[in-house]
Design a protein around this nucleic acid. Structure first.
Lengths: 138, 138
DNA sequence: CTTGAACCTCTAGTCACTAGAGATTGTAGA
DNA sequence: TCTACAATCTCTAGTGACTAGAGGTTCAAG
């Protein structure tokens, strides 16, 4: 049995965040000492690792809640879990696509400027002001 | 002179968002009709387009505030604007890098599952639970 | 038995909006 | 000119996923 601080150290999840996860129903309510402090065991550690890992992968709290519900009903099909992962993947790919376009434009913008006065037509400001200067839609 | 709704239609920025930008100091306080409704001119339209474009590129409100301040003091060097753009570009590249790692892992995860029961070792759930299954750190 | 780090709950703040209530205004058609 | 009613106004509260701080209590080492 270990304290919330120990759990925090082991999982790299901050203490208030752990309490927040409990409040959100991601973590079961922890056992308490006679003095009302939370105590965790290996199961708690594992669940928090799961949550942290899923959050790192960009899953929303809500999605994780579904995943957890699934774990607690092992009779159901794995399909839902796969659906959630697949939709997460689509999300990530969309984000990458958008960011790559932005990267291109930002590179173009920041390469165009070389430290002259703003009054003499700063390319950064001009580019932002005038969408016509973009190479493509975004 | 046009209304906030018209401005919204032209810039694709929602009406409450326009009011929010005004409150945040990104947009100057608009002129008003005798009945207290906001009226905008070409200058307002241009500034809002600038803001929208910068937001699309992921600049924070705070960064845009700096950029606007720069526009209003054309005597200063363009360097600050370039710095902001360059740091934005670094941000975007970092995000792309991270997302690509996630994409890889998510692909691996969602490919591994084919609809069998969760109890028989669903790969999605197992992967999330056990970081050891990751190909690399994230 | 004392000290002080760690813990507790609670409220409020973050960012960039978004939604809704309830009241007022602008404008097009009769 | 009157009447609808869409659009506008202000204000408050909610979103997601935390983070920060106040003020009080408990645990564990010395």
């Amino acid at each position: 049995m270990f304290s919330i601080g120990e759990l925090s150290r082991r999982t790299k999840v901050k203490v208030p965040t752990i309490r927040y996860y409990e409040e959100m129903g991601l973590l079961a309510e922890a056992e308490r000492t006679s003095g009302n402090q939370r105590r965790y065991d290996k199961a708690g550690l594992e669940r928090l690792s799961f949550i942290r890992h899923a959050r790192d992968l960009g899953f929303s709290i809500e999605a994780i809640l579904s995943l957890i519900e699934l774990q607690d009903h092992p009779d159901r099909s794995c399909e839902t879990a796969t659906d959630i992962a697949v939709s997460q993947l689509a999300d990530v790919r969309e984000k990458i696509k958008r960011l790559k376009l932005l990267e291109k434009e930002l590179k173009r913008i920041s390469d165009g400027c070389d430290g002259h006065g703003v009054s003499e037509n700063c390319y950064v400001l001009a580019s932002l002001a005038d969408h016509e200067l973009c190479e493509r839609e975004h």
